[in-house]
Structure formats: C-alpha cells, structure tokens
Design a binder for these strands. Structure first.
Length: 330
DNA sequence: GAGGCGTGGCC
DNA sequence: TGGCCAAGCCT
C-alpha cells in the first residue's frame, strides 16, 4: 500500500499521513505564529460577550473583516443584548445592516435574538446543537460560537481552514467546491486534544488562511509551516477545477440590491411607480433617497424584472406593502 | 446538492 | 477592466 500526499489516509501514521510528533509540531508552530501575529479584533477580546461573538460571526459570513468592524461596533452599542434587538422591528436590523450585503442575515439575526429571548432566557446558548437551531446559524457558526465564546472543543471548518488543510495536508491548491465528510473527518483528527489548545488552533488556522494562506497569491515566505506544506512540496500544482463566478450585472439580484438600498434610506413607504421613474422628475434628486433611486433607474431593468425583485423581497420578509408603498418590515 | 443570495476591494 | 473573492446559510 502506498500513501500519497494528495490522498491522505488514516493509518498507523495518523491523520493526513502525519505522525503524532509532526502533528504536535504543526500545533506548536501555527498557534505560536498566531500568538504573535493575530489581529486585535474586538470580538476576540475576553470581555466580549457571547452575543457580541454571535453578531460578529453572522456579519462575517461572506463579508471581509474591515467592512464588518464599524457596523459591529454600532450594533453592539445599540443592542448590547439579544433582548435589545428582539425588542425592535426586524426592519431596524435590516436598516442598521447598512451595506454589509446579504441583508437576509440581518433578518435571521433578529429572529435568532427573538429565539434566544424566548427559548434561552435571553442568553446565547453555548451548546453546538442549540446554536445550530438558531436562524442563520449553520454548522460553521455554531461551532465557532461554541468554541470562541464558550471555550468548547469544536471542529470549526470555514473557507480559510478548508484551504489551509487542502494545501498543508492534502497537497492541493484549493479545497473541493463543497464541504464533504472527508474534510470534516480530517479537521476533527487534526484538532488538538487539549480544550484550550483546540480553541487557539481553530482561531489560528483560520487566521493563517485569512492572512497568509490566501486564495490568490499566498504569502508562503511568511508561513510558519511552509517546510511542512504538501502543496509546496508538490511544486504548487494548480487547481484541478475552475471556480464558477456568480453573474451580477443585469440579474434580478442586482435589481433586488438596488431596491433594498432605496428602502433602507426611505422614511416612508415607497410607491412602486417611484421605482420606475427618474428621481429628478419626482423631486427627489437632491434628497437622500434620490441617490439609490437614481442608481436603480440607471439599471434600466424591465418592469417584469423589477416586479420579480420586489416579489422576492416580499417573499423573504425583507419588505412589506404598507399604504400603497413598500417599506422594510416594521 | 446545486443555486440563490449583496457588496466592494483588489489584481 | 472585470472576474474573483470574502469567518455561509437555506431551500
């Protein structure tokens, strides 16, 4: 039987073909690198509440840290507890979400806050299974909150960790298009046994993927485990598949985004006909709502496309009809 | 399980 | 310039 770096097999030598001493060395090097390199992020401070950690994790889903920081600070100042957020209309969460993107996350975070008040006496639960039951909380976020807010030993797997494992252990440029059982098993086997070390390991591997082992142009010269990297040893083979990008220009999605940008800034229900006409003709050009209205108009979308976008927003609960116009849910 | 879902910065 | 990418989740 032959062990290939590209096809990690558990055997006498351990996960990914690593001996126990090699695994321990990886733990030491990566957590050591993290101790001296980690960014100072407010949700990593020990005084940050589990609620603050949960809010950060939801905001960080598909959104870069630098854009999350100011919005997270505003949210925690305004709503320092789940009960604070749950006590306000869902539309306020969507409005305060600003331009973070994927505004349904704001809706789900609001629903999660309500569930926490209703089912957990207002305290963010620390168990993976209970976290997973919250709206907007999937396998990654449940594990991350349990680990980072409650110090639990959890197998945290996000896109950064997947990429580090793919290169460092499996020797390929990128992880597979979707998370699979083999990856979860590998991640579980790489996780340090000690609880405290496991928490630091999760954060450290994630940080390594975010700062050094990046998707494009990884900074291998700065990597603390470059001498152990299976991908580097294999001569940096290119990805075996081409990631498929998401279309944007001319899509319903783009129109959705433009419509909700208008609703975020509107302080009264917006009649449907306003979405179809020049804001200058409506006398709104110089007002706050005039800017997103002009942007929407420039898309020059077909009426039926606009209808689909609005219907989608209504269906998702991101908008509601009130007195002949559309607004964020009140 | 593939596809839908925002937004802005970067190379 | 424009496609790729960012601490995913849900259906």
């Amino acid at each position: 039987m032959t062990l290939s770096p590209a096809m990690p097999v558990d055997g006498p030598s351990g996960p990914g073909g690593l001996r126990p001493d090699q695994l321990a060395a990886l733990h030491r090097r990566i957590t050591g690198w993290f101790a001296e390199t980690a960014r100072d992020l407010p949700w990593r401070e020990t005084r940050c509440s589990p609620w603050g950690v949960l809010v950060s994790e939801i905001m960080l889903q598909q959104t870069p840290v630098v854009r999350v920081l100011p919005v997270w600070r505003e949210w925690l100042e305004r709503w320092p507890t789940p009960a604070g957020l749950a006590g306000e209309p869902a539309g306020e969460a969507v409005r305060s979400w600003g331009r973070l993107g994927y505004p349904r996350r704001a809706l789900r975070l609001h629903a999660a806050a309500a569930a926490i008040v209703r089912d957990h006496a207002g305290e963010v639960p620390g168990d993976y299974t209970e976290l997973l039951a919250l709206p907007g909380v999937g396998s990654y976020t449940a594990a991350a909150v349990a680990a980072f807010a409650f110090g639990r030993r959890e197998t945290v797997v996000d896109t950064n960790i997947r990429r580090v494992h793919a290169r460092l252990v499996s020797g390929v440029a990128l992880p597979s298009p979707s998370l699979n059982a083999a990856e979860m098993r590998l991640a579980a086997e790489l996780l340090p046994d000690d609880v405290g070390t496991s928490v630091r390991w999760n954060a450290a591997v994630m940080e390594l993927g975010a700062l050094v082992c990046t998707a494009r142009a990884p900074k291998c010269a700065e990597c603390p485990v470059r001498n152990s990297c299976a991908w580097l040893a294999a001569g940096e083979p290119p990805p075996s598949y081409a990631p498929k990008g998401q279309a944007w220009h001319g899509t319903d999605r783009q129109v959705r985004g433009a419509v909700i940008a208008v609703l975020r800034l509107a302080d009264a229900p917006v009649p449907a006909e306003m979405f179809q006409r020049e804001p200058a003709d409506l006398g709104f050009a110089a007002t706050g709502i005039g800017v997103p209205l002009s942007a929407l108009h420039r898309l020059n979308s077909a009426p039926e496309q606009l209808e689909r976008a609005i219907a989608g927003l209504l269906g998702d609960g991101l908008a509601e009809l009130h007195q002949g116009g559309y607004r964020l849910p009140a």
